[in-house]
């Protein structure tokens, strides 16, 4: 009986030692692996079966410009009839949507079809001037573009405009207001373009709202005799110049 109890005790001690050893080795493995990554599994990103965009890494594309963005450029080129044309995009220019299209891209085809049908897409507000911009006649066929555009679509052939606006590929859309770029990006449907326009207009309204609030605060302060530099505007009670 004593021998049996001794054997069981010994077996129990061995089991405890074995479990402690396993736990320690597991903890060491976890320590060497480090904390879990938020950007996903490295093996997943290196899978050769995945599209290149997914394999490149975790960073997501962000809009290049938001409200109050870069200055636009006038568009100078030729029409499909060979006439010279310059579209001024200065401070007094109406809201304008430039559509960088080509005759060869399959996604552009639906835009050409929609526009050629003569129906202005409902997403494109009447006050917005629309212009299709293609590359120069040395890179595009005016005859083929004539078939695609019909008589309804204003087209300017200008490779210079593609460079000026950094259009990476067709289709690419740039929305301008008062001579500034307020939104740009690639789109495959009018719905996406509508979203681009809506974001740009909302962003601008947001900025204008801030300016309006600032003017209102200035007006109220001025009516109370508090102008810029007034001592009460500073916690220490000192004027701006001090």
């Amino acid at each position: 009986m004593v021998v049996l109890v001794a054997c069981e005790t010994l077996l129990l001690v061995l089991l405890v030692v074995l479990v402690v050893g396993l736990l320690r080795s597991h903890a060491e493995i976890l320590r060497r692996l480090g904390p879990p990554r938020e950007d996903g599994d490295e093996e997943f990103q290196q899978d050769p079966g995945l599209p290149g965009q997914l394999r490149q890494g975790p960073s997501l594309p962000s809009p290049r410009q938001r409200a109050g963005g870069r200055e636009g450029h006038d568009v100078v080129g030729t029409t499909l009839a060979g006439d010279a044309v310059k579209l001024g995009l200065g401070k007094d220019a109406p809201p304008t949507l430039l559509a960088f299209l080509s005759s060869g891209c399959s996604v552009c085809q639906r835009f050409w079809d929609d526009l050629r049908s003569g129906r202005r897409p409902p997403e494109l507000a009447p006050g917005i001037r629309f212009l299709a911009v293609t590359k120069d006649p040395s890179e595009e066929s005016p005859a083929r573009l004539g078939e695609l555009a019909g008589a309804e679509i204003p087209v300017v052939m200008s490779s210079a405009a593609w460079l000026d606006y950094g259009a990476p590929a067709a289709p690419y859309f740039v929305y301008l207001e008062a001579g500034d770029v307020y939104g740009e990006g690639s789109a495959s449907s009018w719905r996406q373009i509508a979203s681009l326009l809506r974001d740009a207009i909302d962003d601008q309204a947001f900025v204008r709202g801030g300016e309006r609030r600032t003017r209102e605060v200035d007006r109220v302060l001025a009516s109370a005799g508090i102008e810029a530099g007034h001592p009460s505007l500073y916690p220490a009670g000192k004027g701006e110049q001090e």
Partner: peptide
Amino acid sequence: LPRGWDGRIYR
């Protein structure tokens, strides 16, 4: 033509 001006030469 200065910046901001529109222009066209057509026939």
